[in-house]
Design a protein around this nucleic acid. Sequence first.
DNA 1: AGTCGAGTTTGACAACTATCGAAGCGGCGT
DNA 2: ACGCCGCTTCGATAGTTGTCAAACTCGACT
Lengths: 121, 121
Amino acid sequence: MSKPSALASTPAVEDQAPCCPPLAQQRIDAGTAVNLSAAFKALGDPVRLQLMSMIASAPDGEVCVCDLTPAFEVSSSTISHHLKTLREAGLVDAERRASWVYYRPRPALMRQLATLLTPND
Amino acid sequence: MSKPSALASTPAVEDQAPCCPPLAQQRIDAGTAVNLSAAFKALGDPVRLQLMSMIASAPDGEVCVCDLTPAFEVSSSTISHHLKTLREAGLVDAERRASWVYYRPRPALMRQLATLLTPND
DNA sequence: AGTCGAGTTTGACAACTATCGAAGCGGCGT
DNA sequence: ACGCCGCTTCGATAGTTGTCAAACTCGACT
């Protein structure tokens, strides 16, 4: 780990479990609830949800922060803070190339959340 | 509307739009983000996520609050408050029968969220 | 009518969060 | 080497949230 590098995603939820059948099929335990609710919380802000959507739908599979920031009314430091939250939740990944930082989605966790919410009828 | 009745679910997101293709397919607009992030926020607490899971996986399609409350370490007023949050998010529905109140899932919104999170690879 | 039990609402408070501006850092280009 | 640009981090602040105990409501059963 030569470089902590500020952009590392904390290896959240998706690494540690084969986790989880749909909510509607099986009650989840407290520990799992803590892990997964953190991801939902990260999506529980309008700005972050839009950021997530812009990142996940990027044609090239990644987006430059310089393209994200001007899409919102808030300051660039606020955007950076929201991106950090998404990173720490394990929903996105970041990489610096030259002067720019690019974000890309981490589909594993998204898929996990999607499965969790799938009704079983 | 003879009785506002405290248990009414505020008719949230799921009523107002045919909404939404997966995040990964199409960027969502600000208004939609506000609506849907409210639902994610409601799931963004460990207690509420467990409550949601217990309600969604109930064998009879519904659960008595009297069965929910003892499953947690927090006070019954706190559980009630969390249930209200889930109701207001449009994720669950409540009905009083005799002395007891029963909660049931509202799959429409859950399905919407699940679709939204489905990666398109 | 009176009481009890199940849930909800209210009020209060500590803890957390979204936001900003300012300061910091890492790379480029001159 | 120097200054600029893109982005992140820091420090401060107003607003929101999770929690509890206490007060209240609704229905059931004497």
